[in-house]
Design a protein around this nucleic acid. Structure first.
Lengths: 227, 227
DNA sequence: CGCTCCGTTGAAACGGTTCAACCCACGTGG
DNA sequence: CCACGTGGGTTGAACCGTTTCAACGGAGCG
C-alpha cells in the first residue's frame, strides 16, 4: 500500500478530502517494475488501472510483423490503463517501463465505487480523458495529414514549450523511441535531423538539440511545406 | 427546448431519473442544420456540446492545403464536441452535417453542474469517452501500422459486423468520404476496390458491395500482407 | 578485446499521392 | 428534347516521400 503522500500530488486526485485520499490509498497497491518490463499487454483483462509514482512508461501498439507505434509516453503522476476501466474492455495496448519505475495499481471495482460517490474525482477523470482524446486527435491529424519533417518540427517545438522557451533541448528518450512516437523509423528521423542541421535550423549533439531557427521550424510544423 | 422523449433514448442518459431527464431537457436547445452546414469549426470556443437527435455528422481535421481527415462519423443518439467540455479547451476539430440533421445543444456550465451531482451521468460520460479513446487508439494503430488495403478490409468487415453478418453491404457515405475516413484519397480507394473485385474478394455495384471471400478479407485486415 | 546497442548513411524498392483525362448519371435551362 | 454543366467515380502515368535492406561507425561494457 502506497503512502498517503504519494497520492496527494497526483493531478487526478486534486481536490479530494484527506478522508477520500486515505480510502484511495487503502485500495491501491504499489509495484516496482524494472526497465523493459511489460506491465500489461494488449488484450489483457482490464482489472484495474495504474498511476505512475516514479519513472517512465510507454504505451504502444504492435503490428503483426513487430513494428511498434507509441501512443503515449507517461511520467510521474500520470494515470494509464484507465480506458479499460469504464467500459469493461480489455487493455487496448501494451504498457512497458522505459526505466526502473514504481506504479500504483487501483483495482477496478474499488475505484469505480470511489468515483461514483465522489463528484470531483469523476470530474478530474473526465478532464484527464478529455485531454487524452485531444492529444489523440492531434496525433491522428499529424499522422495522416502531415509528413514526417512536420512532425519532427512539431515535436521539437513541443519540447521547446515544455522547457518554457529554452532552445537547448535534451531528448529524454532514444531516437528509436522518438521515431516510433512520431510514427516513423529511426533511419528517417536521422535523415531529417541531419537535413535540418545542414539547413541551419538546429544543431545536434547526440541527444542534445539546440534550436537555431525557431520561425522556420514553426512554418514546417504547420504545413507540409517542402523541407 | 427538445421534448423529454428525445432524451430518454440517448445512451449517455441511460439510468437517469425522470426528474434528471427533465432538468437536462430544460437546459438544452435543439437546432436544425442543413446538409453541408458547419456546426462548429476547429478553434471555436467550446461553449457546450451536442447530441445528435436525427441525421449524420462528421468530425474532421483539415490540413493547411485543404486535405481532410475524418475523425468520426456520428449518427442519432451520439454525443459530439464533449472533449472541449471538461478541460476548457476550444473545439479541436470541425463538425459538419452530412445530411439535414437535428442536434441538441447542451451549454457547458449547466451540463457540468448536472454531471457533478449525478454519478450515473458521470459514469456514462466516462464510458463514452473511454470508448472514444479506444476507437482513436485503433485508428492510430491502423494509420501508422497498416496499409490502405488492410484498412479497407477492416472497414468492410466492420460493416459486415454492424449488419449482423450480412454480406450485402451498402455504403451510406460517398466513397470520397470513406477515403477520408480511412486516411487516404478517393483514387487509392477506387483502385483497391477494383483490385479486390478482380481477385474475387468482393463484388461492387456503386455503393453496394457484396463480400465474396470473408476469410481473405480477414487476413488482409489483420496483417499488412501483400494484396 | 570484442560484443552489443544505438545511430548514421547509401542505394534500391515500394506504396501512395498527384495530376490529368475520362465516364456516367443527373439535373437545369434554353 | 437536347445541350450543357456538375459531381461522383474510375483509370493511367509520373512523381515523391518513406521504408527497406545493408553496411558502417562509435560508445559503453563485460
Amino acid at each position: 500500500m502506497p503512502a498517503y503522500v504519494d497520492l496527494i500530488l497526483i493531478p487526478i486526485f486534486q481536490g479530494l478530502s484527506d478522508e477520500e485520499l486515505k480510502q484511495l490509498s487503502a485500495i491501491s497497491v504499489d509495484q516496482e517494475v524494472e526497465k523493459g518490463q511489460i506491465i500489461f499487454s494488449e488484450g489483457d483483462e482490464g482489472v484495474g488501472f495504474y498511476i505512475i509514482s516514479r519513472g517512465k512508461i510507454k504505451i504502444y501498439k504492435l503490428s503483426p510483423d513487430g513494428k511498434e507505434q507509441i501512443l503515449h509516453l507517461f511520467g510521474a503522476g500520470e494515470p494509464f490503463g484507465e480506458v479499460a476501466l469504464f467500459n469493461g474492455m480489455n487493455f487496448p495496448a501494451y504498457a512497458e517501463a522505459l526505466e526502473k519505475s514504481r506504479v500504483l495499481f487501483f483495482p477496478r471495482k474499488a475505484f469505480a465505487r470511489a468515483i461514483k460517490d465522489n463528484p470531483s474525482l469523476a470530474m478530474n477523470m473526465l478532464a484527464a480523458l478529455s485531454m487524452r482524446l485531444h492529444k489523440f486527435a492531434a496525433m491522428i491529424e499529424d499522422l495522416s495529414l502531415k509528413e514526417v519533417p512536420a512532425r519532427v518540427s512539431a515535436y521539437l517545438l513541443y519540447l521547446n514549450n515544455v522547457n518554457r522557451g529554452s532552445r537547448d533541448l535534451t531528448l529524454d528518450i532514444s531516437k528509436a523511441q522518438l521515431a516510433s512516437l512520431l510514427g516513423t523509423i529511426p533511419e528517417t528521423l536521422s535523415r531529417i535531423l541531419t537535413k535540418m542541421s545542414k539547413q541551419g535550423l538546429i544543431r545536434t549533439d547526440g541527444p542534445r538539440i539546440r534550436i537555431l531557427d525557431l520561425e522556420t521550424l514553426e512554418e514546417l510544423a504547420e504545413a507540409g511545406g517542402g523541407l
